[in-house]
Simulated assay, not measured.
Amino acid sequence: MESILTINNLTKKFGYLTAVKDLSFTIKKGNVYGILGPNGSGKSTTLGIVLNVVNKTHGDFKWFDGTVSTHDALKKVGAIIERPNFYPYMTAAQNLKLVCKIKGVSYSKIEEKLAVVGLEDRKNHKFNTYSLGMKQRLAIASALLNDPEILILDEPTNGLDPQGIHQIREIIKDIAASGTTILLASHLLDEVEKVCSHVVVLRKGEKLYAGRVDEMISSHGFFELKADKQEDLIQLLESNTTFKNIKVENGLITAFLNEPMDASDFNKLMFEKGIILSHLVKRKESLEEQFLQLTDNLN
């Protein structure tokens, strides 16, 4: 599969602060990548470097297998890395015409891209009458005018209400389904889990994980447990190598599995050990639980 962007040992320092540290990952064509991490983890800095708006300290990156210069490569990129910045008293269509002139793109693209983001019926309305969600959707339409091979979005749902968040996520899925590669930075685990096929997890500028989202959350899951003999149950779990991590919160025991085990087999084992369970639920680990385990290991 063709590489869209390859980052090798990228580092960025701001004085004594290292914002990005020895970061490496590759973005392949046709996937949706999420750079996931809390605020200050280096997400926006990484995007700024590959978009040539932030200078790297060392390391390198190359677009499209290094076959074109960064300047030419960026003509094939659509990006929104700051709040949408349009003329408030001009209509959506008038604002997009200006963008078409700057990018050297035909005006015929305007209707097409407004349709993608669901704003055709509001094209003749002034930008200052738009809600925050509509402004963000117009920004996405603007970034798509040059039919980019990759669309880069920095915190695309920041500040939006639940309806706006849902609309943006559905638009991202539709754009990806049309074959456009997408790279988005987010601190929202839920966003990455719902929208992305691949994830790069950052913490304080360092990569903790890079790979498929489904592989990250394809653990053996965990049991939620309660029993009358709670202390006996905890001791039994801690001495059993089938479990890698035991947590107790508000009387509920969470036991993470190291290997596959059915709830029925576990219930039988506990019964044989003289422990009667009053609560037994098997669950799959969410991206959030995986993320917390990753970051807990570094504390």
Score class of each variant (00 low, 15 high):
V201F: 08
V201M: 02
R203P: 03
K204E: 07
G205T: 02
G205W: 09
G205Y: 10
E206V: 00
K207W: 10
K207S: 12
K207C: 15
L208P: 04
A210F: 14
G211I: 14
R212L: 14
R212V: 10
V213P: 02
E215I: 13
M216I: 03
M216E: 00
S219C: 08
H220A: 09
G221R: 15
F222G: 02
F223M: 00
F223L: 03
F223N: 06
F223P: 00
L225Q: 04
L233K: 13
L233P: 15
L233G: 15
Q235P: 02
Q235L: 06
Q235D: 03
Q235E: 08
L236W: 14
L236F: 14
L236G: 09
L237A: 05
L237E: 01
E238P: 04
S239T: 03
N240M: 02
N240L: 06
T242V: 10
T242I: 11
I246C: 05
I246E: 02
K247Y: 09
V248A: 11
E249G: 07
E249V: 12
G251D: 12
L252S: 08
I253H: 09
I253Y: 11
I253F: 09
A255D: 05
A255T: 03
A255S: 07
F256W: 11
L257D: 06
L257I: 13
E259K: 03
E259C: 01
E259V: 01
E259M: 00
E259F: 01
P260T: 07
P260D: 12
D262W: 14
A263E: 13
D265M: 15
D265Q: 12
D265K: 13
F266D: 00
N267V: 10
N267C: 12
K268A: 08
K268E: 01
K268G: 01
K268F: 04
K268H: 05
L269Q: 10
M270Y: 15
M270K: 06
F271W: 09
K273Y: 15
G274F: 03
I276N: 11
L277P: 00
L277A: 03
H279A: 13
L280Q: 01
K282G: 09
K282C: 10
